[in-house]
C-alpha cells in the first residue's frame, strides 16, 4: 500500500520536474523562466523524496530523505531570489511583454 502511494508521488514529481524544465525552455526571459522552474522543480523533487520516504519508512534512508526534503524546500526559494536580484543588478532587462516595471524605476533613481 505504502509502495503504491510512493510510486504515485514519484510519478507526480517526475511530471512536475519535466514541466518545470519545459518552462525553462519555453518562457521568454530570465525572470519568467526562474518562476516556472523554481516552483515546479522544487515541488517535483520534494515529491520524489517523499515517495522515497514512503518506500523506506522510518529507516536511515527515509530519515535522510526527509532531511533532504526540508533542506530543498528552505533553500530553493532563497537561491531563486538571489539569482533574480543578481540578474536585475547585472542589467538584464525584462522582456518586451512586461506591463509595469517598478523595480527598475527604483534602482535607476
Amino acid at each position: 500500500m505504502n509502495e503504491t502511494i510512493g510510486i504515485s508521488l514519484i510519478v507526480i514529481g517526475l511530471v512536475f520536474d519535466f514541466l518545470g524544465c519545459l518552462g525553462l525552455v519555453r518562457f521568454p526571459d530570465v525572470y519568467t523562466r526562474l518562476q516556472a522552474s523554481a516552483k515546479c522543480v522544487t515541488l517535483g523533487t520534494c515529491g520524489i523524496l517523499f515517495g522515497l520516504f514512503l518506500f523506506k519508512g522510518f529507516s536511515a534512508t527515509g530519515m535522510k530523505a526527509l532531511l533532504c526534503l526540508a533542506f530543498i524546500l528552505l533553500t530553493a526559494p532563497v537561491s531563486a531570489h538571489v539569482l533574480a536580484r543578481g540578474a536585475y543588478r547585472s542589467g538584464v532587462k525584462p522582456c518586451k511583454d512586461t506591463v509595469i516595471d517598478q523595480y527598475g524605476e527604483s534602482i535607476n533613481k
Binding site: 518552462g23 521568454p28 526571459d29 522582456c95 511583454d97
Partner: peptide
C-alpha cells in the same frame, strides 16, 4: 501556463 500553446503571461515587477 507552460502547457498552454499561447503562453498566457503578463509579467510585471511591482512593489
Amino acid at each position: 501556463r507552460v502547457l498552454h500553446p499561447k503562453l498566457p503571461i503578463r509579467p510585471a515587477t511591482i512593489k
